[in-house]
């Protein structure tokens, strides 16, 4: 059982949360100009990082708010949690999430 620290509610059991996939996937600026392949890439293509990964979580059984977390996919350790309004992942982690064959 993971103990996940919700930015609003503090440490709670993993069972109170739901996973929301990769964080910081920006909505395309001009969605209507994308072709099918680009749109599919936006919708379905995600990193499969081994190591630090920025991801979305929601505290379903608590405050019902979404937040971002930086988790090590090898050890499952949560390095940090932050809300969407806060600046993105701490410096240096952005490259860490895309070192493993990113789409770009």
């Amino acid at each position: 059982m993971l103990l996940i620290t919700c930015p609003n509610c503090g440490p709670r059991d993993e069972t109170e949360f739901h996973y929301g996939g990769q964080a910081h996937v920006a909505y395309p600026e001009n969605p209507s100009e994308l072709n099918d392949a680009e749109w599919a890439k936006y919708l379905f293509y995600r990193e499969n990082t081994k190591g630090l990964f920025a991801e979305r979580w929601v505290h379903t059984a608590g405050c019902r708010k979404w937040f971002n977390a930086l988790r090590d996919t090898v050890t499952y350790e949560f390095k940090s949690v932050y809300t969407g309004a806060a600046p993105a992942a701490p410096a240096g982690t952005a490259s860490a999430t895309s070192t493993n064959g990113g789409q770009q």
Binding site: C9, R12, D13, T15, E16, A61, G62, C63
Partner: peptide, 10 residues
């Protein structure tokens, strides 16, 4: 007071 689960019930 907290919002949590009791036996999986919110």
């Amino acid at each position: 007071a907290i919002v949590t689960s009791l036996d999986h019930v919110p």
